[in-house]
């Protein structure tokens, strides 16, 4: 296994005490594999990604275990973490507008990891950056490398961001909503680019997204997060075809179905995700869930394992196949 995460928890220390943003995160990722992490905003998916990078905010406490290439990352010295970041693990961020430094040339920013991790001179790294920009199929890479971020379009900036991430041939790339801020057509091209790069380099991908469709098309496995908990995980086609968790099912029903009859109304999930301190003893989805029964409100949902890599966290997971969401019976 390239990455093995077990019992990952992130607590934010505030004036009102600690808030658990991520809890009991357990998942693994093999070489070359791609894992989708799906959830609404505030579900803890971005915090999970940042925990892997060792870049959680200063007031956050990370516990549990993160093993990457056989090495334990939690509690690792900062110098050792610095050597990993941008070299073995790279990250692509959501906002290509603000994620690039406005004052540095695009080429210099793409070159920076090469200078840091490969000991290249700035000039040599800049030349290599032009090749990388060409590799991510940016038109006129010479011009793009010399340009400042404000002169590039959103799609071009995101390509530059990807070039920056793959420069040192990382084994794991974490992409946090890489296409959310882009037009739909650009989105598809960027995702195709990421797929292509993964196929040729054998790197593993962790794709964080709120969009099930994006994950469905580009990932081998998926984990669905809600209020800091992994609600369900498994192979992507199995989870989407036969969800074993009411939250996953609600997400699936809340998106437009291809071939659905015109005029059919989309289902929405009633209510809004809980604020962390509002979560009581029971399941965080209790109340919004059609299948809520008494035990959901009082007891945390158990992890129900269906196969080696198929898991759902729900009191009624085993009944899911036969239950109708609308009536709960």
């Amino acid at each position: 296994m390239l990455l093995e995460v077990s019992n990952l928890a992130v607590d934010l220390m505030g004036t009102a005490g600690a808030q658990r943003i991520v809890s009991g995160g357990t998942f693994a990722l093999d070489e070359g594999e791609s894992l989708g992490v799906v959830g609404e905003s505030g579900s803890g998916k971005t915090m999970t990604a940042l925990a892997l990078m060792g870049l959680t905010p200063e007031n956050a406490r990370v516990s549990g275990s993160i093993r990457f290439e056989g090495r334990e990352l939690t509690g690792l010295r900062e110098e050792a973490m610095l050597a990993l970041r941008g070299d073995r693990i790279a990250m692509i961020f959501q906002e290509p507008m603000t994620a690039l430094n406005p004052l540095h040339r695009v080429g210099a920013q793409v070159a920076e990891p090469l200078v840091l991790h490969r000991g290249m001179t700035r000039e040599a790294a800049f030349d290599r950056a032009v090749q990388l920009l060409d590799h991510v199929r940016l038109a006129d890479p010479e011009r793009a490398a010399r340009a400042y971020p404000f002169a590039l379009s959103g799609g071009e900036r995101q390509r530059a961001m990807i070039a920056m991430a793959i420069g040192c041939s990382p084994r794991l790339v974490i992409a946090d909503e890489p296409t959310t801020a882009l037009d739909v057509t650009v989105q598809a091209r960027i995702l195709a680019l990421i797929d292509g790069l993964r196929a040729e380099s054998g790197m593993a991908l962790m794709l964080v997204s709120h969009d099930l469709a994006v994950v469905a098309g580009h990932c081998d496995r998926v984990i669905v997060m809600y209020a800091g908990l992994i609600m369900e995980s498994g192979p992507v086609e199995v989870v989407l075809r036969e969800p074993k968790n009411p939250y996953t099912r609600a997400l699936l029903e809340a998106r437009p179905q291809p071939g659905a009859s015109r005029g059919r109304r989309l289902r929405t999930i009633p209510g809004s995700p809980p604020i962390h301190h509002e979560i009581g003893a029971g399941c965080p989805f209790a109340g919004r869930c059609d299948l809520t029964i008494d035990i959901c409100r009082t007891t945390p949902p158990p992890e129900v394992r269906f196969s080696a890599d198929r898991l759902s966290r729900c009191h009624r997971a085993r009944e899911m196949g036969s239950l109708n969401m609308r009536t709960g019976a």
């Binding site: 870049l55 900062e78 430094n101 920076e112 990891p113 840091l116 920056m164």
Partner: peptide, 22 residues
């Protein structure tokens, strides 16, 4: 607090160097 600071850190730039260079 800008996003590009996180980008810089994700590249492996140290805290101190991100502060002064970015």
């Amino acid at each position: 607090n800008e996003d590009f600071m996180r980008t810089a850190r994700a590249k492996g730039v140290s805290r101190r160097s991100a502060l002064w260079r970015h």
